[in-house]
Design a protein around this nucleic acid. Structure first.
Lengths: 412, 412
DNA sequence: GCACTTAGTTCTAGTGCAGAACTTAAGGCG
DNA sequence: CGCCTTAAGTTCTGCACTAGAACTAAGTGC
């Protein structure tokens, strides 16, 4: 160990900065990373540690460049950060002002790649999962070798982009997400869209790119991103429901994502929502796929209107009051509401986050969604908070990057 | 502290035995309580502690009489316990034999009371939640005073029974469960069946009985009992679904019960299961209440058969092959299957535990339940394990006792 | 300027853990 | 029968981390 320490020069931002962290120091870094600038006093309260311990524990974190005292530094938006902290606290503005600690987002960088059946979407992020650059490429084939080539090429390009943005900075980790089942954040045991069974993608990419690589199911990855840095932040229990080409569903309970072997199986695709609804390709009448996916709505809308419309055109028409389009959209909205009622009844979340490329449905058909939600809910309940996520595709790649961030920060 | 130690004579089974426990010692006691006899070696592996620490930490637990070395003692079934441990391990039967540690179940006793709108059911249990005696009494009224009187009378009677069973033993804690919402395991904020709003039942009973008292929602309490000592034991994620006069639903995720403010609201009562089903008192067609409760099935069965039948008679007829009874029962079984599919799809449990007085439906209509389950499940999924719980009413009171046990063991 | 309040630091004593060496209790084997 | 092997459990020592007290720092209000 002493040998290794001597050999590797302690550069600022070196990813080794995390590794020797003891339990308490790790937790401090994690708290500050997730909950923005926090003073030592805040931390001592949160973690039930004495003030003295905080001085001792934070010093190496500051020395290593992972944290800074946000009061005296210009990272990102200095005043905003300071204001937020001051305003948020019990701020009697008395006594010595607190010295909030913040992570230096640029101290580490990560790359996330989301794989679909025919394309790879990549994003470069900082330690707080802010997207600095994005890129994508088609997959020439489904052989693991094809995918390795594409991911390596995307990674190379983003590494160069990062070098251009800030000289000397390197990438700490790579995260890859894929539809299907992933074991131990490393082995793709079953990915139907790629036709893969037991491909050790993590290992293959670690040797190919030289980056510490983790792999996770795509919806689990987005759920983690939503939990750590997104609309589910600070929530002990929330559900993520995405609408797009398909239906996605992720669950966080007790501050931790549920990662069952079934988490990647698109369990809600055939959830029954409207017995009188159209029948999807699966043969189920009025199932979630037939009622809510973009494809289903485009088909329904085009047939009802007597002409081909895109998803956005359909929603625009409904928003403008077109009765035919509204009929189609409201019916879907009502089905969405009943879906959310089922989620709320069975998982009791504090919040439900809606996302995916088709999330605009929830805005346009907001009243119908509420209707459907209340129809299947006990009137004594309070509605869960409902947050909408941006429909950007880059969020899927960001999810993969967050898994890489977690791997570093949690040390596993 | 030294003073206090000197003042309180260290009696065996004194409930103070738990209180000075430090974090690690508490966890050891908890592991041994929940996972039966464990050797120090087992514990050191589970808790990532050195063998030396185990010696140090277990000594006071043995001295206080909370634990015993199960190899040299006759508690309950000595040979069975020893065999189980030996058989379970990697048992190469080489080297020094492990000395399993076990809790002394009789070192503490608890009373649990379940309140309904018109009755109180009480149970006396040991530290492992085994029921030693049961009792019950009608409630003369809904005033808190009426309920206090009944609970105090039942408690007195069970304390006497305990004294008769084992001289000198006392009761460590009292748990009370009630349908409705309970705050902080103490205050009944809303109990519709009793017409209560914000009754500080925990405090009232603590002063009235002199026992450390905790209060919890009834279904949460049964869920905790199932989790710690019942069919959900050892499960990281499971759902409990009870069929009786109403529908009950509890959820454990990441080894912890979900206790949202909504957990006691009977959220699944109106869950839609069969659009063509009968309409319940709530006005929903084919909701869980209308399809699955004992009352609904008795009504359906009696009307279909043209004569009054009891629940058990209906199930007997169906089991014997009566086509009319089978029609009613299978339809309910199928609805139950679809209910379980929804639970499985949305919460991804390892196991679903079925309980309640009407649980026999799941046995008699097993094939229909499987049908309904598969109808709404992705064929790539594996069925969750399904366990049946005894339909005994005493389990509800046991649940209340378990909450009292938890209060002591977890120190909150 | 001075008291007051709260944040953060320094120092010391004590706790609790790991790790190594040792003891104990079995089976295997010549 | 005695010795070796294996694995569980114990004892002891050093170390890492923590709490707590006393102290310093940096502001506000009078």
């Amino acid at each position: 160990m002493t040998l290794e320490t001597r050999l590797s020069a302690p550069r600022t931002g070196d990813h080794r900065a995390w590794e020797p962290l003891t339990g308490a120091a790790r937790r401090i870094a994690l708290e500050v990373l997730l909950d923005g600038p926090l003073s030592r006093r805040d931390l001592s309260r949160r973690m039930a540690l004495s003030p003295g311990s905080l001085t001792r524990l934070t010093r190496p974190l500051l020395d290593s460049g992972l944290l800074v005292e946000a009061g005296s530094v210009e990272v990102g938006a200095p005043e905003t950060a300071a204001d937020a902290t001051d305003g948020a606290g019990t701020s009697p503005r008395l006594g010595r002002p607190a010295q909030p600690l913040a992570v230096v987002p640029g101290s580490h960088h990560f790359i996330g790649v989301k794989l679909t059946g025919d394309h790879a979407y990549a994003a470069l992020t900082d330690l707080r999962a802010e997207i600095l650059a994005a890129d994508d490429a088609p997959l020439p084939g489904h052989e693991p070798q094809d995918v390795l080539d594409v991911v390596a090429a995307l990674t190379d390009r983003l590494v160069s982009r990062l070098a251009a943005l800030s000289a000397g900075a390197g990438v700490t980790g790579l995260g890859v997400s894929v539809g299907g089942h992933v074991d131990g954040r490393s082995v793709v045991t079953d990915a139907p869209h790629l036709g893969w069974l037991d491909v050790p993608l993590g290992e293959l990419l670690t040797t190919r790119t030289g980056l510490r690589t983790v792999v996770e199911n795509d919806i689990v990855a987005v759920t983690e991103a939503t939990h750590w840095f997104g609309e589910g932040h600070g929530c002990d229990r929330f559900a993520l429901f995405t609408i797009g080409a398909g239906i996605g569903y992720g669950l966080v309970v007790h501050g931790e994502a549920v990662t069952s072997p079934e988490a990647g199986l698109s369990l809600l695709s055939h959830f029954p929502l409207d017995a009188t609804g159209p029948t999807g390709p699966c043969g189920h009448a009025g199932c979630a796929t037939a009622m809510l996916t973009i494809g289903a709505l485009v088909t329904e809308g085009s047939s009802a209107l007597g002409r081909e419309v895109t998803y956005d055109q359909l929603l625009d028409l409904a928003a403008a009051g077109d009765p035919v389009a509204s009929g189609v959209v409201d019916r879907a909205g009502r089905a969405l509401g009943r879906m959310l009622a089922a989620v709320a009844n069975l998982t009791m979340p504090e919040r439900i986050v809606l996302g995916g490329e088709g999330v605009r449905l929830a805005q346009v058909a907001a009243a119908a969604v509420r209707d459907g939600l209340h129809h299947d809910r006990n009137p004594r309940t309070r509605d869960p908070e409902i947050s909408l996520q941006s429909p950007e595709l880059a969020l899927w790649a960001r999810g993969a990057a967050v898994v890489a961030i977690q791997s570093l920060v949690l040390g596993r």
